[in-house]
Amino acid sequence: MTESLRTCYVYLNQTSRSFAAVIQALDGELRHAVCIFYLVLRALDTVEDDMTIPLDRKVPLLQDFHSFLYQPEWRFTGSQEKDRQVLEDFPTISVEFRNLGQEYQDVIVDICRRMGVGMAEFLEKKVGSMTEWDKYCHYVAGLVGVGLSQLFSASQLEEPEVGGDTELANSMGLFLQKTNIIRDYLEDQQQSRAFWPQEAWSKFSSGLEDFAEPQHLSSGLACLNLLVTDALRHVPDVISYLSRLRNQSVFNFCAIPQVMAIATLSACYNNPMVFQGVVKIRKGQAVTLMMQATNMGAVKSIIAQYSQEMVPKVCVSDPSCERTLHMLALIRERSLCGDSHTHTHTHHLSPVYLSAAMLLAALSWQYLSATATATATTTPPGTTDMQGH
């Protein structure tokens, strides 16, 4: 391993926290490709997040970012963000990008270009319609799913159809992103950010910020449940996508975030705490999910469990009641039905994979324990975040 690649893995561990362990568990050269893909997008995202960069400078930075991958000396030293080292030492990342096989380079530069253009589009406009919500989530997360899927296929660890079916790959990203946006309502409001679509919240209030007020709780819950229901429509695609995967390390990499998301979404549904604090799943629950999500049968059971936990919480007076129950019934049907691909992942895990799962759980527990103190002021003890970042 080159010195620059070692440095890239240092940056990976510094910026992606607990999910660095999942990336590093990927097989062969795919591990390096996904590491570089992550760091390139982390650098792009750092530019987008930095509110100290003037718009007239930020827009061309985002739109042209993909071209910097082929400029060996390019770096950006004007950021104040916590992850700015990936911009300040971008030559270390870009040289390893150019060391990748051309099939990997083509995927990364294409996704970086499309994402940069999309981020620039939403810099000066808020998410209005539900269609725009899908579009925004596509730019910031769906494209990540598409790019990862194409990397999986380029590595030949997965079949070409995994990278070719961009609709399923997009749904993988949208489900995660929508769950994050739903869960992070209060944090985003406190930082003057708004990602809940106006088409949804305007049905129940004159202002998105109203939902944080106790007198507007019933309206807030109605909007929350509408958005949770919208996110649930991606779950059948998630099941279809995961059912196609053949490589165990790729399966683990993809399945763990999805089961964490369904558990988080279930906890958020009809929950007033979304407007009062941060809804997080328990530390022990998170580690258990990581340990269990290693085969398709287990993943389907987890999805069925958490989706059905929402059913008793559905109120007949909720405006989205019928659609919510319909989606939950559809998910239950998809979770319980047989699948021609499922047998691939129902074998007993080898000692190597059991050891890797134990290591991942241990690393995750260390991270969750370390962050528990930091979050104690806003969340009850024994909870954890859905994602490491």
Rank of each mutant, 00 (worst) to 15 (best):
N13V: 02
A21P: 07
A25Q: 11
D27H: 15
G28I: 09
E29Y: 02
H32R: 12
Y38N: 05
A43M: 03
D49N: 11
L55P: 07
R57I: 13
D64E: 13
E73C: 03
T77D: 14
R84E: 05
V86I: 10
E88P: 04
P91Q: 01
E96T: 07
L100Y: 02
G101Y: 01
G101S: 14
Q105C: 10
I108H: 01
I108T: 10
V109S: 12
I111A: 05
M115E: 08
M119Q: 13
F122P: 01
L123A: 06
K125L: 01
V127H: 00
V127F: 00
M130F: 14
T131W: 03
W133L: 12
K135F: 12
Y136H: 04
Y139H: 15
Q156W: 09
L157I: 07
N170G: 09
Q177D: 10
T179V: 12
N180W: 03
W196Y: 05
W201L: 01
W201I: 00
D210G: 01
P214Y: 04
Q215R: 11
L217F: 06
C223K: 00
L227A: 02
D230R: 11
V235R: 08
N247S: 14
Q248L: 14
S249D: 07
V250W: 05
Q258H: 09
S266D: 08
P272T: 07
F275C: 04
L289V: 10
M291H: 10
M291Q: 12
N295A: 09
G297Q: 09
I303H: 00
V311M: 11
P312A: 11
K313M: 08
D318L: 06
R323Q: 15
T324N: 05
H326C: 13
H326A: 12
L330A: 12
L330I: 08
L330T: 09
S335P: 12
S340C: 05
T344S: 05
P351D: 09
A356N: 04
A356M: 12
M358E: 10
L363M: 08
L363T: 10
A372K: 13
P380E: 07
M386D: 04
G388R: 03
G388D: 04
